[in-house]
């Protein structure tokens, strides 16, 4: 069995939103192994984004432990978390979170500017099929293209972990499949351990393992012996 890259143990998270207190995680255990593609499935409000943010070092758990390889992130300070994200984690968000004032290539360069041994921005964009649209601004691209720029930005640092939060959530079916194909290719060709959050059940078929979350807890786990091809997924 492949080595565990990232592990969360007994994770809980309580946060305030405006005047409301929300218990988003109620003791979650999750592991991500080398080269694995895991899909986290769950309804809206089940705690999957919170979990991903904690695993990716964007947020801290209220209790529990997070371990990346042999580094304990549970008590890491802000600088250590920043370095962890910078060196090891690539993020893809539902709303792309591109910088609207920068072109596709410049959005990728944002990352390649600050890491050692990155991919060339143009090469990263070619990997996601956007080699011809380097100088376009986000406002000049479709949602699928913007999401692929976001993926290029995430993989340009050659991350060890690719964490994707509803990457197809804002896209239509055809564009969504295109994005999933890119994620599948990155996972296969670069061997990047990948976690994909979705509430879209058919996407689970492309995973090595599917973890279902409900109400802040892990509800079940299914291991696939065979992954479906992204191109074959329909919803």
């Amino acid at each position: 069995m492949a080595e565990v890259v990232l592990a969360g143990r007994e994770l809980t998270k309580l946060y305030r939103m405006g005047e409301v207190e929300v218990l988003a995680l109620r003791g979650v255990d999750l592991e991500l192994r080398e080269g694995e593609l895991v899909v986290l499935l769950g309804a809206s409000g089940s705690g999957k984004s919170t979990l991903l943010n904690i695993l990716g070092g964007l947020d801290r758990a209220s209790s529990g432990r997070v371990q990346y390889r042999d580094q304990d992130l549970s008590d890491a300070d802000e600088d250590e978390l920043t370095l962890y994200r910078r060196r090891h984690v690539g993020f893809v968000f539902q709303f792309y979170n591109l910088i609207p004032s920068l072109t596709a290539k410049e959005n990728v360069a944002l990352v390649t500017d600050i890491v050692d041994d990155p991919l060339d921005p143009a090469e990263a964009l070619s990997l996601v099929g956007l080699g011809q649209r380097l100088d376009h601004f986000p406002s000049q691209m479709s949602g699928g293209e913007q999401q692929r720029v976001a993926i290029a930005r995430a993989i340009a640092k050659r991350p060890d972990l690719l964490l994707c939060d509803e990457p197809t959530g804002a896209l239509d079916f055809q564009t969504g499949v295109l994005v999933l194909e890119v994620l599948e290719r990155v996972n296969r060709e670069l061997g990047t351990s990948t976690a994909v959050i979705t509430h879209n059940l058919p996407i689970a078929a492309m995973a090595d393992r599917v973890v279902t979350l409900a109400d802040g807890r892990v509800q079940g786990e299914v291991v696939h012996t065979q992954r479906a091809k992204a191109a074959d997924i329909r919803w």
């Binding site: 920043t82 370095l83 640092k157």
Partner: peptide, 16 residues
């Protein structure tokens, strides 16, 4: 707000 979040997510420090 979301751009700031993205910058931090890709590894820019608070200081930067």
């Amino acid at each position: 707000r979301s751009q700031i979040a993205a910058l931090k997510a890709v590894g820019y420090s608070n200081l930067q």
